[in-house]
Design a protein around this nucleic acid. Sequence first.
DNA 1: CGGGGCTCCTGTGCGC
DNA 2: TGCGCACAGGAGCCCC
Length: 272
Amino acid sequence: MPELPEVETIRRDLEKQIINKRINNVFVLSPEVITTPKPLRFKKLIIGTTIKKIIRCGKLLIFELKRTNLCPVYLTVHLRMTGQLIVSRISNRARVSLQLSNRSFLNFYDQRKLGRLSMVDNWRKISLVRQLGPEPLNKDFTLTRFKQMLKNKKTKIKPLLIDQKFLAGIGNLYAAEILFLSRISPKRIANSLNEREITSLYNNIKKVLKLAIKCRGSSVDTYRDAKGEKGTFTRHLKVYARRDKPCFACKTPIKRIVLGGRGTYFCEVCQQ
DNA sequence: CGGGGCTCCTGTGCGC
DNA sequence: TGCGCACAGGAGCCCC
């Protein structure tokens, strides 16, 4: 489940590998992963462009593609659950494969085909982007702003943290870890948090995401970076996927409940 | 407007 | 041993 740290790791990897490379050809094994435009038009649009910039917006990757004598066009990639972007040789498993001018291939793999690719003229107009909450690692995401954001929220804090309209980039795994370190129960109503709890939550959002980027993400399941390597934040996990295992702080077995339809791991003693 | 529940998708792991 | 089913969860959708 690629979240902000995983997507950012891939973005940085790709930035080193494919900037200024020309897209010479495209191979589409699974046309259903391309939402817009139709695969044939998609191919026509993308072939002959040069990759100029790679932007991350929440969990979305955006490739700025330059065309001669024309406005740039943007390729967007959402990895969803099992999507991978790996630079390697030609592959018959890749759902979509971009052949680059240095004879390497940017391969989009996706076991479950939930990931999505599209081509747009203006990525800022995509509804997903427009609705996105603040980037938790940006300077404009201040403690004051966070307090303001929580003020009138009557929902449970865990589903709120993974709501992309509230905050960009946090998913199920990092929400669980952030709440454990903040010693806050996932069931708490957002506007019931006191000053001290909000500050702790704010600090841990930044701390966990930064450390996870340093670790190149978490490879619980299928996540791989752009070189096909696993991330090492997995070994820092305190609660996620640790059902019935002893809490590292108090030895109480970690609980798994369902909140907002998602598995939620926490220690009911440490997190109040 | 908000929250709950369903859908997409397939490999994995469990119980009978 | 083999089958059927629940489960994993990001995002979009419908519905109340």
